[in-house]
Design a protein around this nucleic acid. Sequence first.
DNA 1: TGACGGATTTACT
DNA 2: GTAAATCCGTCAA
Length: 205
Amino acid sequence: MSLLNRKFYNRDSLIVAKELLGKLLVREIDGQKISAKIVETEAYMGFRDKAAHSYGGRRTQRVEVMYGGPGFAYVFFVYGMHYCFNVVTREEENPQAVLIRAVEPIEGLDIMAQNRFGKSYSKLSKSQMKNLTNGPGKLCRALSIDKNLNGEDVCGSKLYVEEGENEKFSIVSAKRIGVDYAEEAKDYLWRFYIKDNTYVSVKSL
DNA sequence: TGACGGATTTACT
DNA sequence: GTAAATCCGTCAA
């Protein structure tokens, strides 16, 4: 399967966010492989997006990665206990990113189950299976993504995205989650997800 | 150096 | 449905 190259990410977040749906997010740890289908994303558009960490050209050590060019991981810590994983888009000095909000587990189920609930996949309850990776903080736990991977090359070998099955699906556009402070930007339909997929974190508009 | 709030999750009622 | 958990990053001093 082909790996998405840096050019893929060097476009507006709105485009990349939509095109990442259905693709395969792969994580390799100690020769073990975990993969999951991307089912929900959000676009953060940088300078003109009040919800973005880089709004208005805000530039701190935390967001520096977003200024560094496309195809790198931006991992940040929220609410004192969770990580969120983004892929940086657009060229250097144009700080945009796509937040991966939810994925569908494909390969390495036991590793993910172990990371999330400390037991093998076959021992999970039905609700635990559904809650394995259906949220930005959850999928980071499941895939062992933390601040050590901040700035990691997503065109590299630890964490990358592969071309998916090219199956057909409908894309739903919706408001982003958890950005109520962002004034008019909170109503932008910059969240995208695969219609009817079980692992989408929040359905509705 | 210290106060404050958050691109969330979980366990409650 | 609501609320607690929990601590890093940011900004102001």
